[in-house]
């Protein structure tokens, strides 16, 4: 049975169900227990499992370090980074420890941690609470970066992430928290490392994640009226990437537009673009286009913030330019 749930509630439900399902799962982070999380995502867990929900000091390194160490001992911690930007103060733990455990132990130990990180811009909180951190973590083999876009994906992918034996950074876009969608009541998994073809089309492939999918869909609708068929792909797991799905789509359409929140320089759009031109240049009919935020810090004032991020018009312009190349 399914009913409508918000993205936030879907994540909360996944956490409750996994706490129920597996006694080795516990949550920790700043204000995640008693208060139920700064964004309310972990509500109700402490009340049911007071020993398995831990409020911590403002110590991101300790939070992730503790997660890593306990994971080696067979626990499954789900840590919260109140804002993904704070990954900078626990980067060592993610990069040098979490991502290396399996490698170092030659497969004898793994590091089944999930780090839930609240990402993205749009809530007028300026540059320390609005950054898109995906690329900061995307060249760390050993880490998995997941970016769900819908309540259905949020629940299923969080359950998969918790059950997965590798360290997963689970990105939650703060502007999607109130997004509602159909979510089954029972626990279910969504396969990681598998991109979703959200819409079929023959002329342009758009790759986008999280909030950027809205722009992609709006542009696709507009372009449909012009007779241009847009295929939309949500990689869902950004790293390791489901290259196959993207390659097959672009081999069919011959045109690729990547829509990405966050600076253009070295963003995941750059990686996808490079990958496609490297692997299937022969199939391309037009240059690859990236639609991204500007290469600036996110500013506070709404006028400033909104100017920095991509809009549907930018996506349309990019699509038209690849069509007319």
């Amino acid at each position: 049975m399914a009913r409508k749930l918000s993205y936030a509630k879907a994540i909360n439900e996944a956490l409750h169900q996994e706490m129920e399902h597996d006694p080795s799962v516990f949550i920790l982070g700043e204000d995640v227990a008693r208060m139920g999380g700064d964004f309310g995502i972990t509500q109700g867990i402490w009340h049911k499992w007071p020993d398995r929900a831990r409020d911590t000091a403002l110590s991101e390194s300790a939070i992730i370090g503790l997660s890593v160490g306990s994971a080696v001992c067979g626990l499954r911690p789900v840590a919260e980074l109140m804002f993904a930007d704070f990954v900078t103060v626990c980067y060592d733990q993610l990069v040098n420890n979490a991502a290396k455990i399996h490698f170092m132990y030659g497969g004898e130990a793994s590091c089944p941690i999930v780090v839930r990180a609240v990402t993205g811009s749009g809530i007028r909180c300026a540059y320390h609470h609005s950054q898109s951190i995906e690329p900061w973590l995307m060249n760390i083999p050993g880490l998995i970066i997941v970016a769900p876009a819908t309540p259905y994906e949020a629940k299923g992918m969080l359950i998969s992430a918790i059950r997965n034996n590798d360290p997963v950074v689970f990105l939650e876009h703060k502007l999607l928290y109130n997004r509602k969608g159909e979510v089954p009541v029972e626990p279910y998994e969504i396969e990681l490392f598998k991109a979703e073809i959200e819409r079929k089309g023959d002329d342009i492939t758009i790759v986008a994640t999280m909030r950027m999918l809205d722009l992609a869909h709006a542009a696709a609708k507009e372009l449909e009226n012009e007779g241009v068929g847009v295929e939309i792909i949500d990689p869902r797991t950004l790293f390791p990437l489901d290259k196959r799905t993207i390659i097959e789509s672009v081999a069919k359409t011959g045109r690729l537009v990547v829509v990405q929140e966050g600076p253009k320089v070295m963003g995941f759009g750059a990686e996808i673009g490079a990958m496609v031109s490297e692997e299937i240049f022969e199939y391309l009919r037009a240059p690859i286009k990236r639609v991204t935020s500007l290469d600036v810090p996110i500013a506070f004032s709404p006028e400033l913030e909104d100017y920095v991020n991509p809009t549907m018009d930018h996506v349309l312009a990019a699509c038209r330019s690849v069509m007319s190349f």
Partner: peptide, 18 residues
């Protein structure tokens, strides 16, 4: 033309460079 995209029904696909 852009016809590699002209649907899977048409069957024949060829890359632009080919």
């Amino acid at each position: 033309g852009s016809g590699s995209g002209s649907g899977s029904g048409s069957g024949l696909r060829i890359t632009p460079k080919a």
